[in-house]
Protein backbone atom coordinates (compact mmCIF):
# COMPACT_ATOMS: atom_id res chain seq x y z
CA UNK A 1 0.00 0.00 0.00
CA UNK A 2 1.51 3.38 -0.97
CA UNK A 3 2.04 5.72 1.93
CA UNK A 4 -0.42 8.59 2.05
CA UNK A 5 1.71 11.69 2.59
CA UNK A 6 -1.19 14.12 2.74
CA UNK A 7 -1.66 15.79 6.07
CA UNK A 8 -4.84 15.31 8.02
CA UNK A 9 -5.78 16.59 11.44
CA UNK A 10 -6.74 14.41 14.38
CA UNK A 11 -7.93 15.32 17.86
CA UNK A 12 -5.80 14.07 20.74
CA UNK A 13 -7.18 14.30 24.23
CA UNK A 14 -4.51 14.01 26.94
CA UNK A 15 -4.87 13.47 30.62
CA UNK A 16 -3.16 16.32 32.45
CA UNK A 17 -2.18 16.30 36.10
CA UNK A 18 0.32 18.48 37.90
CA UNK A 19 0.33 17.50 41.58
CA UNK A 20 1.70 20.93 42.54
CA UNK A 21 -1.27 22.85 41.15
CA UNK A 22 -4.09 20.38 40.38
CA UNK A 23 -6.32 18.72 42.92
CA UNK A 24 -7.37 16.10 40.37
CA UNK A 25 -6.56 15.07 36.78
CA UNK A 26 -8.38 16.68 33.85
CA UNK A 27 -8.27 16.37 30.05
CA UNK A 28 -6.84 18.83 27.52
CA UNK A 29 -7.67 18.54 23.84
CA UNK A 30 -5.25 19.25 20.95
CA UNK A 31 -5.66 19.35 17.16
CA UNK A 32 -2.68 17.55 15.66
CA UNK A 33 -1.80 17.47 11.95
CA UNK A 34 -0.48 14.06 10.99
CA UNK A 35 0.67 11.99 8.05
CA UNK A 36 0.26 8.27 7.58
CA UNK A 37 3.67 7.41 8.98
CA UNK A 38 3.22 9.18 12.31
CA UNK A 39 3.03 7.24 15.55
CA UNK A 40 0.99 8.27 18.59
CA UNK A 41 4.32 9.16 20.24
CA UNK A 42 5.10 11.55 17.37
CA UNK A 43 1.67 13.07 17.92
CA UNK A 44 2.55 13.71 21.56
CA UNK A 45 5.93 15.16 20.51
CA UNK A 46 4.13 17.50 18.11
CA UNK A 47 1.94 18.72 20.98
CA UNK A 48 4.99 19.27 23.22
CA UNK A 49 7.03 21.04 20.51
CA UNK A 50 4.28 23.12 18.89
CA UNK A 51 1.22 23.45 21.14
CA UNK A 52 1.99 22.98 24.83
CA UNK A 53 5.53 22.54 26.13
CA UNK A 54 4.31 21.57 29.58
CA UNK A 55 2.90 18.18 28.47
CA UNK A 56 4.99 15.52 30.19
CA UNK A 57 5.53 11.95 28.98
CA UNK A 58 8.30 9.36 28.89
CA UNK A 59 9.93 8.12 25.70
CA UNK A 60 13.32 7.14 24.41
CA UNK A 61 14.02 4.71 21.57
CA UNK A 62 10.97 5.22 19.25
CA UNK A 63 11.29 1.56 18.15
CA UNK A 64 9.48 -0.59 20.74
CA UNK A 65 12.58 -1.77 22.56
CA UNK A 66 13.14 0.58 25.51
CA UNK A 67 9.70 0.13 27.07
CA UNK A 68 9.38 3.79 28.16
CA UNK A 69 6.39 5.06 26.21
CA UNK A 70 3.59 2.84 27.49
CA UNK A 71 0.27 4.67 27.67
CA UNK A 72 -3.43 3.96 27.62
CA UNK A 73 -4.81 4.91 24.21
CA UNK A 74 -8.61 4.80 24.26
CA UNK A 75 -8.37 2.62 27.35
CA UNK A 76 -6.00 0.03 25.88
CA UNK A 77 -2.40 -0.20 27.14
CA UNK A 78 -0.01 0.25 24.17
CA UNK A 79 3.48 1.46 23.37
CA UNK A 80 2.77 4.86 21.83
CA UNK A 81 5.75 4.48 19.43
CA UNK A 82 4.27 1.22 18.18
CA UNK A 83 0.78 2.57 17.54
CA UNK A 84 -0.20 4.75 14.60
CA UNK A 85 -2.43 7.82 14.47
CA UNK A 86 -3.88 6.70 11.12
CA UNK A 87 -5.50 3.70 12.81
CA UNK A 88 -7.68 6.01 14.94
CA UNK A 89 -8.61 8.62 12.31
CA UNK A 90 -11.27 10.02 11.86
CA UNK A 91 -12.05 9.38 15.54
CA UNK A 92 -10.20 11.11 18.33
CA UNK A 93 -7.67 9.51 20.68
CA UNK A 94 -7.82 9.73 24.42
CA UNK A 95 -4.36 9.24 25.95
CA UNK A 96 -4.00 8.45 29.63
CA UNK A 97 -1.13 7.24 31.82
CA UNK A 98 -0.93 3.46 32.38
CA UNK A 99 -3.66 2.08 34.61
CA UNK A 100 -3.01 0.82 38.14
CA UNK A 101 -0.02 3.11 38.85
CA UNK A 102 0.21 6.43 40.70
CA UNK A 103 0.64 9.45 38.38
CA UNK A 104 3.76 11.55 38.89
CA UNK A 105 2.70 14.11 36.29
CA UNK A 106 0.52 14.03 33.14
CA UNK A 107 1.31 10.73 31.38
CA UNK A 108 4.25 9.78 33.61
CA UNK A 109 3.63 7.04 36.17
CA UNK A 110 5.56 5.97 39.27
CA UNK A 111 7.20 2.59 38.48
CA UNK A 112 8.81 2.04 41.88
CA UNK A 113 6.38 -0.67 42.97
CA UNK A 114 7.30 -2.72 39.90
CA UNK A 115 11.03 -2.11 40.36
CA UNK A 116 10.83 -3.48 43.93
CA UNK A 117 9.00 -6.55 42.66
CA UNK A 118 11.49 -7.05 39.86
CA UNK A 119 14.30 -7.03 42.43
CA UNK A 120 12.41 -9.52 44.63
CA UNK A 121 12.40 -12.23 41.93
CA UNK A 122 16.22 -12.14 41.63
CA UNK A 123 16.23 -11.71 37.84
CA UNK A 124 19.73 -13.04 37.23
CA UNK A 125 21.37 -16.46 37.08
CA UNK A 126 21.64 -18.01 40.54
CA UNK A 127 24.13 -20.89 40.58
CA UNK A 128 25.14 -23.18 43.42
CA UNK A 129 28.81 -23.11 42.47
CA UNK A 130 30.64 -20.33 40.69
CA UNK A 131 32.10 -21.86 37.57
CA UNK A 132 35.74 -20.86 37.07
CA UNK A 133 36.52 -19.01 33.83
CA UNK A 134 38.94 -21.77 32.86
CA UNK A 135 36.04 -24.24 32.72
CA UNK A 136 34.79 -22.45 29.62
CA UNK A 137 31.32 -21.24 28.69
CA UNK A 138 28.02 -22.71 29.85
CA UNK A 139 26.86 -24.62 26.81
CA UNK A 140 23.17 -24.76 26.04
CA UNK A 141 21.24 -26.69 23.42
CA UNK A 142 18.72 -24.86 21.21
CA UNK A 143 16.00 -26.78 23.08
CA UNK A 144 17.27 -25.47 26.43
CA UNK A 145 17.38 -21.94 25.02
CA UNK A 146 13.82 -22.23 23.70
CA UNK A 147 12.53 -23.02 27.19
CA UNK A 148 13.15 -19.47 28.38
CA UNK A 149 13.88 -17.39 25.26
CA UNK A 150 10.38 -15.90 24.86
CA UNK A 151 10.32 -14.81 28.51
CA UNK A 152 13.69 -13.08 28.17
CA UNK A 153 12.16 -10.69 25.62
CA UNK A 154 10.43 -8.59 28.31
CA UNK A 155 11.25 -4.86 28.09
CA UNK A 156 9.62 -3.88 31.42
CA UNK A 157 7.14 -1.58 29.67
CA UNK A 158 4.45 -2.36 32.28
CA UNK A 159 1.60 -2.70 29.76
CA UNK A 160 0.84 -6.06 31.39
CA UNK A 161 0.49 -4.45 34.84
CA UNK A 162 -1.86 -1.85 33.40
CA UNK A 163 -3.88 -4.68 31.82
CA UNK A 164 -3.95 -6.95 34.88
CA UNK A 165 -7.23 -6.78 36.83
CA UNK A 166 -5.65 -8.63 39.75
CA UNK A 167 -2.88 -6.06 40.11
CA UNK A 168 -5.58 -3.38 39.92
CA UNK A 169 -7.55 -5.01 42.74
CA UNK A 170 -4.54 -5.81 44.91
CA UNK A 171 -1.17 -4.23 44.18
CA UNK A 172 0.58 -6.73 46.49
CA UNK A 173 0.37 -9.17 43.57
CA UNK A 174 3.88 -9.70 42.18
CA UNK A 175 2.38 -9.28 38.72
CA UNK A 176 2.85 -10.54 35.15
CA UNK A 177 6.25 -9.15 34.05
CA UNK A 178 8.09 -9.90 37.32
CA UNK A 179 6.68 -13.46 37.43
CA UNK A 180 7.49 -14.00 33.74
CA UNK A 181 11.07 -12.89 34.40
CA UNK A 182 11.19 -15.11 37.46
CA UNK A 183 10.22 -18.00 35.20
CA UNK A 184 12.77 -16.88 32.59
CA UNK A 185 15.55 -17.65 35.12
CA UNK A 186 13.94 -20.72 36.70
CA UNK A 187 13.55 -22.23 33.22
CA UNK A 188 17.20 -21.60 32.33
CA UNK A 189 19.35 -24.74 32.37
CA UNK A 190 22.25 -22.72 33.84
CA UNK A 191 20.20 -21.57 36.83
CA UNK A 192 19.71 -23.37 40.16
CA UNK A 193 17.75 -20.66 41.92
CA UNK A 194 14.33 -22.27 42.43
CA UNK A 195 14.79 -22.30 46.21
CA UNK A 196 15.75 -18.63 46.55
CA UNK A 197 12.79 -17.57 44.40
CA UNK A 198 10.35 -20.05 45.96
CA UNK A 199 9.16 -17.65 48.65
CA UNK A 200 7.94 -15.16 46.03
CA UNK A 201 6.44 -17.82 43.75
CA UNK A 202 4.61 -19.79 46.46
CA UNK A 203 3.02 -16.81 48.22
CA UNK A 204 -0.60 -15.71 47.87
CA UNK A 205 0.80 -12.62 46.15
CA UNK A 206 2.96 -14.82 43.89
CA UNK A 207 1.61 -17.08 41.14
CA UNK A 208 -1.51 -17.70 43.24
CA UNK A 209 -2.58 -14.07 42.85
CA UNK A 210 -3.31 -14.79 39.18
CA UNK A 211 -6.71 -16.03 37.96
CA UNK A 212 -5.58 -16.47 34.34
CA UNK A 213 -7.55 -13.62 32.80
CA UNK A 214 -4.84 -13.51 30.13
CA UNK A 215 -5.13 -9.85 29.13
CA UNK A 216 -1.44 -9.38 30.08
CA UNK A 217 -0.39 -11.68 27.25
CA UNK A 218 -2.77 -9.98 24.84
CA UNK A 219 -1.31 -6.49 25.34
CA UNK A 220 2.36 -7.58 25.53
CA UNK A 221 4.22 -5.92 22.61
CA UNK A 222 7.01 -8.52 22.73
CA UNK A 223 4.85 -11.70 22.80
CA UNK A 224 6.26 -12.71 26.18
CA UNK A 225 3.04 -14.48 27.29
CA UNK A 226 3.27 -13.82 31.04
CA UNK A 227 -0.03 -15.64 31.67
CA UNK A 228 1.51 -18.86 30.38
CA UNK A 229 4.66 -18.34 32.46
CA UNK A 230 2.56 -17.88 35.59
CA UNK A 231 0.33 -20.86 34.89
CA UNK A 232 3.32 -23.16 34.36
CA UNK A 233 4.55 -22.07 37.75
CA UNK A 234 1.25 -22.85 39.43
CA UNK A 235 2.09 -26.45 38.57
CA UNK A 236 5.65 -26.03 39.88
CA UNK A 237 4.46 -24.28 43.03
CA UNK A 238 1.86 -27.00 43.69
CA UNK A 239 4.56 -29.67 43.21
CA UNK A 240 6.77 -27.76 45.65
CA UNK A 241 3.87 -27.51 48.14
CA UNK A 242 3.29 -31.28 48.10
CA UNK A 243 7.03 -32.00 48.24
CA UNK A 244 7.17 -33.48 44.73
CA UNK A 245 9.91 -31.10 43.57
CA UNK A 246 12.17 -32.28 46.39
CA UNK A 247 11.43 -35.92 45.57
CA UNK A 248 12.35 -35.27 41.96
CA UNK A 249 15.49 -33.54 43.28
CA UNK A 250 15.03 -30.63 40.94
CA UNK A 251 16.18 -27.09 41.42
CA UNK A 252 13.35 -25.87 39.26
CA UNK A 253 11.82 -26.58 35.91
CA UNK A 254 14.19 -28.79 34.00
Amino acid sequence: MPIDTTTRTIEIECLRYDPQTDTEPHFSSYQVPFSDDMSVLEGLQYIKDQLDGSLTFRWSCRMAICGSCGQEVNGVPVLSCHTFLRDYFPHKLRIEPLNNFPIIRDLVIDQNDFLDKLESVKPYLVTKLEKPLAAGPHLQTPQQLNRYYAYSQCINCLLCYAACPQYGLNSDFTGPAALALLHRYNADSRDQGWQVRAEVINADAGVWGCTLVGYCSEVCPKAVDPAHAINQNKVNSAMDFFGVLKLMNKGGTE
Binding site: N202, A203, W208, S237, A238
Partner: peptide, 12 residues
Protein backbone atom coordinates in the same frame (compact mmCIF):
# COMPACT_ATOMS: atom_id res chain seq x y z
CA UNK B 1 5.83 -14.16 52.77
CA UNK B 2 4.29 -17.42 53.87
CA UNK B 3 3.46 -20.13 51.36
CA UNK B 4 -0.09 -20.01 50.03
CA UNK B 5 -2.51 -22.83 50.83
CA UNK B 6 -3.91 -22.32 47.33
CA UNK B 7 -2.18 -25.39 45.78
CA UNK B 8 -4.59 -27.71 47.64
CA UNK B 9 -7.66 -25.99 46.20
CA UNK B 10 -6.04 -25.37 42.84
CA UNK B 11 -5.26 -29.08 42.42
CA UNK B 12 -8.88 -29.98 43.31
Amino acid sequence: MKPSSEPIFWML
